[in-house]
């Protein structure tokens, strides 16, 4: 039966080699094996969006992705979003200014999702933002401010 094998992951432009069982999800590889805990686990079942990361530029759920599956892909997490000099991404900045979070636990997922949402051209109106950000639950109910932040960042980067 399968055991641990080397898995090479390209995370935020850095190559990381891990020894993992095939069943380890990308989310657990990040959080438990690489100690990169910016990506959150809210459900582990694809139902909340807290684990959203980018794989080859697309927003996906790390809890339903096997780490081995992402070998050969470029993975971006919240830790890799700021500029090389540490300048926050415009979406991060907008989230702070609009108070688009409270407890902050859904926030990395919201931000990764928002960056992709804008890139996909799905931030054209408040209703469009609401629908295309619906895969990121926020129990603190920061939704109205999330919409403002995404709109603001979309306008700034337009």
């Amino acid at each position: 039966m399968a055991s641990v094998r080397p898995v090479k992951l390209d995370i935020n432009g850095k190559e990381k080699t891990l020894s993992l069982e095939p069943r380890v999800t990308l989310l657990d590889a990040l959080r438990e094996h690489l100690h990169m805990t910016g990506t959150k686990k809210g459900c582990d079942q694809g139902q909340c969006g807290a684990c959203t990361v980018h794989v080859d530029g697309q927003r996906v759920l790390a809890c339903l992705t096997l780490a081995v599956q992402s070998e050969g892909s470029a993975i971006t997490t919240i830790e890799g979003l700021a500029g090389p000099d540490g300048t926050p991404h415009p979406v991060q900045q907008a989230f702070i200014e609009e108070d688009a979070f409270q407890c902050g636990y859904c926030t990395p997922g919201q931000i990764m999702s928002a960056v992709a949402c804008i890139r996909e051209g799905r931030a054209g109106s408040d209703d469009e933002i609401r629908e295309f950000m619906a895969g990121n639950l926020c129990r603190c109910g920061a939704y109205p401010n999330i919409v403002s932040a995404v709109r603001k960042a979309a306008e700034a980067t337009a």
């Binding site: 969006g49 959203t52 927003r59 996909e120 895969g135 990121n136």
Partner: peptide, 9 residues
């Protein structure tokens, strides 16, 4: 269907 993230996967 589902969410933007799930649809990408």
């Amino acid at each position: 269907a589902a969410s933007a993230q799930l649809r990408n996967m």
